Simulated assay, not measured.
Amino acid sequence: MRFTLLVLISLAIALGLGGWSAHLTLEESAEIGTVAVGPWTANPFAGSPDADPYAKARLARLGSLTLGIGEGILFTADRDSSDAPLRRQCQYRIAGHTPPTRIWTLAPYTPEGRLIQPGAGRAGWLTSHNLMRAEDNSFAVAIGPMARAGNWLATSGRGPLVLALALYDTPASASSGVDSLSLPDIELETCFDG
């Protein structure tokens, strides 16, 4: 009986420490293969067969599908251009240009990967085809809970915010130097903490 108890304790310790170390390794290796362009980050190889094993394991754990290299690239931002965390109760301005692409989308998510529901009658994401632009093809988008004139992406609730900018059918790929791209800035305008 004592031998069986020692084997069970040993297995519990081995499985517990093994699971904890695997989880820690996946969290700490999140930066492997990622590139940063201002506040935006992307892993260009995440959807390719050549992705590192840690990236494949993170994607399997999250259960999310990624864009293949030929399909496009997904950039995310959880901080603004001044390196402050993005929050749903704040108003932001995204302005600038995107690389050449057939179409791009911009959507707000929770850190867990759930699309933030903006409320009845409001779009939960924006696409490049329905934006108002300046003469030089630049754009500005207001993001936040308060309605704004022009391009506005509504958010709701309180807490952290992750913005996802997906570029579809674009020559901006890993082979052309993703880190040398120009992406729009994210600037804080005001917060509604009250």
Score class of each variant (00 low, 15 high):
T4Y: 06
L6Q: 13
L8F: 14
I9P: 00
L11W: 12
I13C: 13
A22R: 13
A22S: 11
L26Y: 12
E31L: 12
V37M: 10
G38S: 10
G38W: 09
N43L: 11
P44Q: 10
F45S: 14
R58H: 08
A60V: 03
L62G: 04
S64L: 14
E71L: 10
G72E: 06
L74D: 09
A77Q: 07
D78Q: 14
R79S: 09
P85Q: 12
I94L: 15
I94Q: 04
H97A: 08
H97R: 12
P100G: 11
I103P: 00
I103K: 07
W104H: 07
A107L: 09
Y109A: 02
R114G: 05
R114D: 13
Q117G: 02
G119P: 05
G124L: 03
W125C: 00
L131A: 04
M132H: 11
A134Q: 14
E135P: 06
E135S: 15
N137Q: 13
M146T: 10
A149Y: 01
N151K: 09
L153H: 06
A154Q: 00
A154G: 03
G157Y: 05
R158G: 00
L161E: 06
T170N: 07
P171A: 05
S175N: 14
G177D: 06
L181N: 07
S182T: 14
L183Q: 04
E187K: 13
L188D: 04
L188W: 05
